[in-house]
Design a protein around this nucleic acid. Structure first.
Lengths: 344, 344
DNA sequence: CTGTTAGCGCATTCAG
DNA sequence: CTGAATGCGCTAACAG
């Protein structure tokens, strides 16, 4: 049978309270030799404290929940590593929940986490216009931090986000600075707040160069490879139509994610249009495939590890009862230069 | 303050025992109207049972741990979905631990899971020749199931594995059946049990076609893109050396993972060797990048979702105290035909 | 410095 | 059908 502090106490000839004190490394309250004796008994009996009992007694479970919309999202691995990195050092465990893009499931997961008495939740929500999960959390006054997507009804909630505007600006500036004159911007679904931010970033870059944003070519996709292909085809017509001295309507493409960028590249290749000689391409995300395609894709990398780490640290502070002034953290993305842009 | 069963009891004019009975849906022991009354009070007071207290009282935490060597491994997303799929319906939560290919960290994580009193562990170990984590688990007699990699010292442990031999045979047969006569097999690190199985599968296929396995060309890599490139270069020499009527030493390549297959394709492209016209290529894993490269990669897909699901179901049965006769489950992979092989 | 006494919230006998 | 009592393993005052 597993040893309990009662066993240790009896065996060491002290009270449970004393055992508890050495267990919790209380500096005051236990004499040095008693401490040593208790410790000796502990590992002689192979004692292992029971987290559940501790949780009941202290009201904290030393675990937090992470809810994500789609675990297949390629920016996850690093994100989770960042979170674990911050959590483990404090002894916290991480409950993982994948809501599969289903808001009802998301709510169920939050409910489960609540029952499991996690100390806090990191929430990467499926929908930015629904706050039903937050109601649950707030009703129990459980700390939470939003990840990647703000929730409209909670403008002042704690959260960690990518600087989408800055990232988009960086990409556009790089393209424009490299000599591009007619930029095609393939954005994600209009309506998403991310899309708005990225568009703003691209327009920033235009103005910065003295160009009118109206000179931009716009495309829209749903983040799939196919939608990236379509965006290019919408401007060039079917393959075969483009020949020889045909003048391209654009000389650079910035896509809101790597998949669409890869789709665009595919369309260009079919038409024999050289990348990066005739058209430069920049993506967003830096998924694994970005460096596997030919030529490897220049892209904007989100600081996934940093986002994970910062969100966990922020949550930990909230759990500790702090009311930080900076409840919103913005992570700067970075430009990863590879082969779909010409050397500068 | 959160309501407890004591509050419910007082409010409903019954005892805590009765509340507990309706909470656990005990059919016997509570009159129908009492039950209704208690339930009414429960949701009037927005009652939410405390998992921690339940855990202490029952000895089960309704949570399991998953330990993986590298969460960036692309076969994870589906695996986790499979696990969650099986777990959620039973109300179980999932603790995720990434050991980052570090066996010491892996052991620490197991230790943490033990303290958190999870009811069982799914272990995808970093090393197949170390059983120190298992010692910990067995000492507490905590149920566990091995995933993807057997551990040598525990040949009869419960586990769920891919049929690597079958998958490799399938790939080789497809290539040979399509007319390939000189097959280059780029395997993973020799020594890994997976590598041995896959090699056996490829040799099976040769014999099946009446070919001597000695006719095979062998390469070895470490699963990286670069190692795939090198494997090809080792046979062809530096780019530029291969010209015109040069006779290729192989007409088909089977790589032990997609990354190496993609590396091999890259080497071939540099030399102007057409895929699939001159050389056919098949990979293993079916990562996202497989269908993003040009041409899209024909590959062997592991049944990740099934593996996750089956491992969780098996663990659940072990937790329930069952001693199933089939403690080892083998999942069949499947061939995904795309563009790096010629139409049959 | 150490021991005693109460709970934490719930499940589970055992009576009635 | 229902209630009172006891304990799960540990922490946290409060005494000495």
């Amino acid at each position: 049978m597993r040893a309990t502090i009662a066993d240790i106490a009896k065996e060491a000839g002290v009270s449970k309270a004393t055992v508890s004190r050495v267990l919790n490394e209380r500096v005051e309250g236990v004499g040095p030799e008693t401490r040593l004796r208790v410790k000796a008994v502990m590992d002689r009996l192979d004692f292992e404290p029971c987290g559940v009992a501790r949780g009941l007694a202290t009201g904290k479970s030393l675990s937090v929940g992470l809810v994500v919309p789609d675990i297949a999202d390629p920016f996850f691995p690093l994100l989770i590593r960042g979170i674990e990195d911050a959590l483990r050092s404090e002894g916290y465990g991480l409950f993982l929940c994948d809501s599969g893009l289903d808001i009802a499931k998301e709510k169920d997961h939050v409910r489960m986490l609540l029952e499991k008495r996690v100390d806090g939740v990191i929430l990467n929500s499926t929908l930015s216009d629904c706050d039903c999960q937050l109601d649950l959390l707030e009703r129990r006054s459980l700390p939470y931090v939003l990840l990647d997507r703000p929730i409209e009804a909670r403008p002042s909630a704690a959260g960690v986000y990518t600087d989408n505007r800055g990232g988009a600006r960086m990409a556009a500036e790089f393209l424009l600075g490299g000599g591009a004159r007619r930029l095609l911007f393939v954005n994600g679904p209009a309506g998403l707040s991310v899309s708005k931010s990225r568009r703003a970033g691209v327009e920033d870059a235009c103005r910065g160069r003295g160009l009118s944003p109206s000179a931009l070519l716009h495309g829209e996709g749903d983040y799939s490879v196919e939608s990236g292909e379509r965006a290019v085809e919408a401007l060039l017509g079917p393959p075969g139509a483009t020949r020889g001295a045909f003048r391209l309507p654009f000389d650079a493409i910035f896509a809101a994610n790597d998949r669409m960028a890869i789709g665009a590249m595919r369309s260009l290749r079919r038409r024999g249009i050289g990348v990066p000689e005739s058209v430069e391409v920049v993506g967003f995300d830096d998924v694994e495939a970005a460096h596997l395609v030919e030529p490897p894709l220049t892209t904007i990398a989100q600081g996934a590890f940093a986002m994970g780490r910062e969100s966990a640290l922020l949550l930990l502070r909230l759990i500790a009862g702090a009311r930080p002034r900076k409840r919103t953290i913005v992570i700067e993305p970075s430009l990863v230069i590879r082969g779909t842009t010409r050397p500068r």
